[in-house]
């Protein structure tokens, strides 16, 4: 898919584990794993809002667009 999720990069920058993020964001580990591995079909604004709040970053730091055709 053209949208890449860089959640693991931001987590590494903030030195935060998946368990810690799961606790702070209020998402289950399986849902966070779906998001991290890029299997997610959609993300709610509320989820994005909470993740950005916890990781102190912008949505663009987590989501990246890559043109597949290039």
């Amino acid at each position: 898919m053209a949208i890449i999720v860089n959640l693991d990069v931001m987590m590494a920058k903030r030195k935060m584990s998946l368990n810690e993020l799961s606790d702070k964001v209020g998402l289950t580990l399986s849902n966070l794993s779906i998001l991290k591995t890029g299997k997610a079909k959609a993300i709610r604004f509320s989820t994005l809002d909470t993740i950005c709040n916890v990781l102190e970053c912008q949505p663009g730091d987590i989501l990246e667009y890559v043109n597949d055709e290039q």
Partner: peptide, 8 residues
Amino acid sequence: QNENDLTV
């Protein structure tokens, strides 16, 4: 349903 399951 599958799409809904993969919405986080």
